[in-house]
Design a protein around this nucleic acid. Sequence first.
DNA 1: GCTAAAAATGTTGTAACCAACTAAGGGACA
DNA 2: TGTCCCTTAGTTGGTTACAACATTTTTAGC
Lengths: 236, 236
Amino acid sequence: MPKKVLENHDSSVETVLKFTRQAIVDGRFAPDTKLIPRQIASECGVSFIPVREALRVLVSEGFVTFFHNRGAWVTPLSIADLEDLYAIRIELETEAVRRASPLSEADIERLTSFLDSADRASARGDRKRVLALNRDFHFFIYEKTQSPRRLRLIEQMWQHAERYQRLSLNYRHDAADEEHRDIITALAEDDSRGAARAMRTHLETTVDLIRTAFTAAPLAQSQKLNVPSQQKVTKS
Amino acid sequence: MPKKVLENHDSSVETVLKFTRQAIVDGRFAPDTKLIPRQIASECGVSFIPVREALRVLVSEGFVTFFHNRGAWVTPLSIADLEDLYAIRIELETEAVRRASPLSEADIERLTSFLDSADRASARGDRKRVLALNRDFHFFIYEKTQSPRRLRLIEQMWQHAERYQRLSLNYRHDAADEEHRDIITALAEDDSRGAARAMRTHLETTVDLIRTAFTAAPLAQSQKLNVPSQQKVTKS
DNA sequence: GCTAAAAATGTTGTAACCAACTAAGGGACA
DNA sequence: TGTCCCTTAGTTGGTTACAACATTTTTAGC
């Protein structure tokens, strides 16, 4: 009943969307648990109709699954999905590197600076900054491909991947850094195939570690609360 | 006010979703035109709240663009997007063929039967059936990869591609048939790389033709009605 | 004509309400 | 004691009505 002020840049739906997606990605809304629209609505300070709109979008993005007349549930994680996800990431991202090449001298320097900053952040234990710089490094390359569709797909895949990545808690900075520098080296030599190969190695190493973590702690990611009988799923 | 019967498999939102998406894909809702929620609501026999939910989903799928306080518009087409789209299709679908191989003898026969049926349908001028069989042929292969995420992405890309395909009206059955049989031949010999290469050729030939059609009739696909000033776009 | 105010139109979000379905609890009966 | 069915309560999916703004169009004055 109180009205919103003008200059409202984020619509209600977007507020809810960002809030809920982030909560799912960083595990606050655990896999296989039920999402309660009214609760989300009150947490975001909106009525529950925008919440339903946001949940629909999350269904189409794959973060949420609707069971007819049984509400919205956080999509579960699985080894099979992890493999599937990374197989697609590898295709899209290796090809993105290939298309990004050749890069200018300035671009190479920029990429190097991301890694140097990450080194310093890692030395002082600033994990959050390291992760942000990791993202910056990758997307700086991907954006060079000038391919909006590919970029959008990669962004979505990254968000899904984050759900798995947080299971292997310790980010392996030193190894990742070395793999990143291999990518830069190839890019600096305009060796697009070599860069793509280095990217593939990097992603394959990553998924190996996540797979191990996931297999070791099979219950950490899914507490199986009130799992509904599987039927009448709304897919998209 | 009149209630729906039981056994309602499709929810209101899904009804609207399918209706609107199909209308956009086959050009009844033209690129760059405004979508009027009330009109869609009355056409689908629902109120306009499920319509808004459906439009949100279409935004996230890329078929619709929201302008803040200015409503929902059909996403325009462009050469750049066509190239982008097909580049991604080629990656996802060539890799899908590669992963589908090896196929069983029975699978190969099934694929051949699709093409033979399409030949007969083409001979009697049944264009709709030819297109359906084309889809069956491709997706029979893609489904063999057992990769739900990839399949879902390919399905979405196909729907976007259909928007462009209808611009080159005459489906080139004979040429496509030959390319399809090249794919089968390679698959029958368990030559996954050859099959992937044949698929790439097939898709590249297709996009070449669409590009020509699109360039030749640049106004056919976009009548630029009431184009709003570009700002404050809701992206997803 | 041109500009500015006012009305119409459309979008966004809220609230209250109803019907249908699910799931849980309880009693009858073997 | 255990199984099955029926009732009941709670949740979900959907509708209408309405309030607050933004944009667009019309109207009116200069």
